[in-house]
Amino acid sequence: MISKGGSEILKEIAYLPQFFDLARALKSEREAIEELKHIDINIEPPHKYSKPFEDFNRVEKDIEREHMADLQRKLNELKGKLERGKEINPEDFKLEIITFEELEASAKVYKLLKEKIESMPTEKRAPYEQARRYLLESGLEYTRKELEANLQNYLRLRRRKRG
């Protein structure tokens, strides 16, 4: 039974190259891992390496803490502007978010912005709507990195399990 029109079928076919790209990428990755399996690696006792890793983690935590403090300052400024009813620049709402906690922290400003939009006449909403969209988009890079890192870890573990 043929139930699909030509355009419907064409639409489905259009996605196939992307599927093959993904399949090819996974295949070449698998081949690279196969090669790596044959290399002997001598691992020194962990205590020799733990110090640099500990230092690195500490530095990373410091950077995150500092970044969070900066972001919090910026969020407070934006909040103040919104509460006082000052004019806003939508570009200021493009925030650099590097952790999930920062994503959660920006929720208050988003709520305030939304309340502001709802209380405004339609013709004055445009910059606020734009700011809302920028805020919604902030942190995409963080999410992308998070998904990528998780996926790579998962694939590595699966490969190790299969041996």
Partner: peptide, 23 residues
């Protein structure tokens, strides 16, 4: 909103999770 008609999984997931966080 303002996304291409065929967004990547990452951007769609990000938007949906953020919408939930922002309530």
């Amino acid at each position: 909103e303002e996304m291409s008609s065929c967004p990547s999984f990452d951007s769609l997931f990000h938007r949906i999770r953020t919408i939930l966080i922002y309530e």
